[in-house]
Design a protein around this nucleic acid. Structure first.
Lengths: 169, 169
DNA sequence: TATTGTTATACTCTATAACTATA
DNA sequence: TATAGTTATAGAGTATAACAATA
């Protein structure tokens, strides 16, 4: 171990093991969850995340930019997904009264219904794929450890939402 | 906690916390690593995984089917990626002497070179995104816990490589 | 001038099904 | 007949850049 924070040129065996297990689990969880969401509610994973985020928000409403955070990495990508969700009647979009530049996305009743239809299977899949093999104590440890990593990622923006490019005249 | 393995209808708070942290970290790590691989070696994440898998294999050779495992979820997807890698000269493909139906993919020197070019930045990114916030002890715990989950996923195939469909005449 | 969001466009990737060839 | 891989094709998703409108 170095004693400061110079970029390391290799990973320790434990780090390698953790990284491999992490990628293996996350890729399988992601793939299985995507299939479940598609079959239970005809949702892509991104669409599910957007709906879930709205479901957590007060009044089920968020500005486009706030909705995007951490889910989608380009503005046009969000517009695209929001259009799909709106066409299906799962969300509504309306200009914000506060700031006329903003669009406020609101979870519609049909959107809540789809979330409700999809949740049980989602939870079951996550339990089966991630938690079935873990003791309660290990789940707590996992939450604590990954929480630390997540906190740091949030504090040290590796730029989730890429800032707008300057013109290249 | 139920005392058997009936499918649960909800997650405990600790499980929810672990799941959210897990998805948050894995999505950010994935996105950042993809950008790094693209800029350092013009590789997609899937292509990197395929090359890395070949790099780990004895003689740097694998049958298509073995190469696919856990990385790609359709045969045609693997053929597509293998073609791209072959066009760039990073791998070679040849029919297997043992079984003439099989194609053996071999890592070419150029492929090893790209892996070498990409590794340092990859390791640095993983360190920065995942391990910088964790103590050595926590890294060990993470490896142990996720290793358990991975073992179970391997033992309980949620069908990574979907079996071939029957004809619908 | 900076910010919010949309549009146009091109591209990458994936999946399904049909097909070939070998076991 | 079953398995290994390829091909054809179609669709979903993403990113870049140009654009309009508001702050």
């Amino acid at each position: 171990m170095g004693f400061m924070t110079e970029p390391p040129t290799s990973l320790t065996p434990a780090q390698l093991g953790a990284y491999f297990a992490f990628t293996e689990v996350s890729s399988l969880v992601r793939h299985s969850v995507e299939k479940q969401l598609r079959s239970a509610g005809d949702l892509s994973y991104v669409q599910f995340q957007l709906l879930a985020r709205l479901g957590d928000a007060p009044d089920g409403r968020l500005r486009m930019t706030d909705l995007a955070d951490g889910v989608v990495y380009s503005r046009s990508g969000l517009t695209y997904q929001a259009q799909l969700l709106e066409q299906r009647g799962l969300v509504t979009r309306a200009p914000s009264p506060d700031d006329e530049r903003s669009t406020v996305v609101a979870l519609a009743d049909a959107g809540r219904a789809v979330l409700a239809a999809v949740f049980p299977g989602h939870i079951e899949a996550v339990h089966e794929l991630l938690f079935a093999a873990l003791s309660d104590r290990d789940v707590g440890e996992l939450a604590r450890i990954l929480g630390q990593a997540a906190d740091r990622l949030r504090a040290t923006p590796p730029r989730s939402a890429a800032p707008r490019q300057r013109k290249t005249p």
